[in-house]
């Protein structure tokens, strides 16, 4: 599997930004954690929606 951290070396544009490490990438797809985030994001969105109507 390609390691995105190696991309720092691929293009000078990439050297000054942040690239997620393995843990962050795992958590982005971890179903249990993402279900929690799903709930949190929905609440945040509902607040913004309610403030906008």
């Amino acid at each position: 599997m390609n390691d995105p951290l190696l991309n720092f070396r691929k293009n000078p544009q990439f050297t000054n930004t942040m690239i997620p490490d393995r843990f962050v990438r795992f958590m982005r797809k971890c179903v249990i954690w993402q279900f929690i985030r799903f709930t949190v994001i929905n609440i945040k969105m509902l607040i913004v929606v309610s403030k906008s109507h």
Binding site: N2, P4, N7, F8, K10, N11, Q13, F14, N16, T17, M18, I19, P20
Partner: peptide, 15 residues
Amino acid sequence: KLFAESLHAERNVPW
């Protein structure tokens, strides 16, 4: 900007 650049760098998509 940081997040967009991060996503491009992570996915190896120059701009």
